[in-house]
């Protein structure tokens, strides 16, 4: 009987020690949560990039770039990236190239339509063409199936009358600036 009692007590003591050890070995942890939120929006954007064959754009890679033809004339020298594809008695054309890249995110659209218009009526003696399409203040469709996420080259022509200033020709020896608005619409 005594032996049994001693055995039980030893067992109890061992169990207590084991429990104590387990308690001491228990992992100490702490947790915290961060509730992170980001609203992913779909959209489409346009940017103008310098074309290797054209003038270097100012603010290239943005949606508000500038293309400077420099000094142009029917017969004189032209800036790099500017060509003169035609000269007639009535007018001459100077041309440069620029790239349009349209980017989309979150849309199922695979192509876009590109339109353009002059922000204001063309200055006297000048006409503006993009890909041979004469621009006005009304929207003109330039491209109907543009591919996203790649530079697409377009040519920009300035058709300049050869008439003298005051006789239908453009002002001379003064910068003439015109803004062309481009709009890309997901198809």
């Amino acid at each position: 009987m005594l032996k049994k009692y001693i055995s039980i007590m030893r067992g109890a003591a061992l169990a207590a020690l084991l429990m104590c050890g387990a308690s001491l070995a228990a992992q100490t942890t702490a947790t915290g949560v961060i509730n992170g939120t980001l609203v992913n929006k779909n959209g489409i954007s346009i940017q103008f990039d310098t074309d290797p064959a054209g003038v270097t754009l100012g603010a290239a890679g943005t949606s508000a770039a500038t293309a400077n033809f420099g000094t142009v004339s029917a017969f004189g020298p032209l800036a790099a990236g500017v060509t003169r594809p035609s000269v007639t008695a009535a007018n001459f054309t100077v041309r440069t190239f620029f790239d349009v890249q349209v980017i989309q995110g979150g849309l199922t659209s695979t192509t876009y339509t590109l339109t353009a218009n002059l922000a204001a009526a063309a200055p006297t003696g000048l006409n503006y063409k993009v890909d041979a399409i004469t621009l006005t203040t009304a929207l003109q469709t330039i491209q109907i199936n543009g591919a996203y996420h790649t530079d697409i080259a377009h040519n920009l022509d300035l058709v300049i009358l050869t008439a003298a200033p005051g006789a239908g020709g453009p002002a001379v020896n003064t910068p003439i600036t015109t803004t062309i608005n481009f709009t890309a619409t997901a198809n």
């Binding site: 992992q27 942890t29 947790t31 961060i34 509730n35 939120t37 929006k41 979150g106």
Partner: peptide, 25 residues
Amino acid sequence: TLQVQVKNTVAAQVLQETITFLATA
């Protein structure tokens, strides 16, 4: 730094996660 990386094909939606941090001594 918590980063959320989204491909451009992902449709418009709210991206939300509860991130549980566990520190263990």
